[in-house]
């Protein structure tokens, strides 16, 4: 392995890792040490920040809440996007192009625009402060994305597959569930990855739509920051822990991430 070959990617990854290292460094320091001075690694190594998070329900429930609505959202988005993407990739129907474009425009809607109306809408239907409110609200940008990615993958599957199955006497749903879905598992993986990602990282809507029962970890962090003064060590540890679910998910789809958008049609 020549060094020159890896120089640019290596430097770039170093740049990416520096702030993450700094966050980890802070998370193993006591708040006193953080405010007391500057050091490249913890002088009095402590895990008390992590212990505090894992023993306090208001903290660890935040992670559980976030994971629950992210998973609900991913399942809903991908399962309703599958038949729709199939329709877009195989059939022409009245208004199909306009419909596709309209779906994509929702990916362009700034969450800041929708925060207040969403609050009113979900309060009116009685879903405020539930996992469902956040999961459904995130469908606004995740469904269009899932349809877009899946449509790209499905268009890469030759139509002969469908025709042969119908000639063999398969009904539509039988063919769709038994033959078609298994052939595009990579696409489903990529779509699920991006749904997970955009739901996991979003804060504005998740914070607006919850108060206590379904409060996401990100909101717990912002509220702690303001209520209990400046507990940097605790905040850093909480932040460091939010990286883990994402890292696990990336590892599973590492061979497909790059393909995801490449196959989507513009």
């Amino acid at each position: 392995m020549s060094i020159r070959k890896w120089l640019v990617p290596g430097l770039y990854i170093l740049f990416l890792m520096l702030p993450i290292y700094w966050l980890l460094n802070m998370s193993f320091k006591t708040t006193n040490e953080i405010l007391g001075g500057f050091s490249l690694w913890p002088q009095e190594f402590t895990t008390e920040n992590y212990v505090a998070i894992f023993t306090d329900p208001t903290w660890y429930n935040g992670y559980i809440n976030s994971l629950i609505y992210v998973l609900i959202n991913t399942v809903i988005s991908v399962s309703v996007a599958l038949p729709a993407a199939y329709a877009f990739s195989r059939y022409r129907f009245l208004g199909d192009k306009h419909l596709f474009f309209w779906l994509l425009t929702n990916r362009m809607a700034p969450p800041a625009v929708f925060a207040l109306p969403f609050f009113q809408l979900y309060s009116a239907v009685g879903l405020f402060d539930t996992y469902w409110a956040v999961a459904l609200a995130h469908c606004l940008f995740n469904i269009p994305l899932a349809v877009w990615i899946l449509e790209g993958f499905m268009s890469g599957v030759p139509k002969e597959l469908d025709e042969t199955a119908y000639v063999d006497g398969y009904s539509f749903w039988h063919f769709f569930g038994r033959i078609f879905i298994p052939t595009i598992t990579a696409g489903i993986g990529v779509a699920a990855f991006f749904c997970f990602m955009f739901s996991w990282v979003e804060l504005l809507l998740a914070k607006t739509l919850t108060s206590v029962a379904a409060k996401p970890i990100a909101a717990t962090m912002t509220r702690t920051a303001s209520s209990s003064g400046y507990e940097l060590g605790l905040l850093a540890a909480a932040g460091a822990l939010t990286i883990i679910p994402g890292a696990i998910v990336i590892w599973f789809v590492r061979n497909y991430i790059a393909k995801g958008f490449a196959l989507g049609r513009v």
Binding site: P9, Y12, I13, L16, M17, L18, P19, I20, W22, L23, M26, I34, L35, G37, F38, M197, W200, V201, E202, L203, I217, A218, M221, T222, A225, L232, L235, A236, G239, T242, I243, P245, G246, A247, V249, I250, W251, R254, I257, A258
Partner: peptide, 28 residues
């Protein structure tokens, strides 16, 4: 490499802000 590069994409946005805050603070 790809996994390491994708890491920033999956960090909640407020954590990205907070992380850069403590990374860039002039004193600490």
């Amino acid at each position: 490499c790809l996994v390491l590069m994708a890491l920033p994409l999956l960090i909640p946005w407020n954590v990205v802000g907070a992380m850069w805050n403590i990374f860039a603070l002039p004193d600490i």
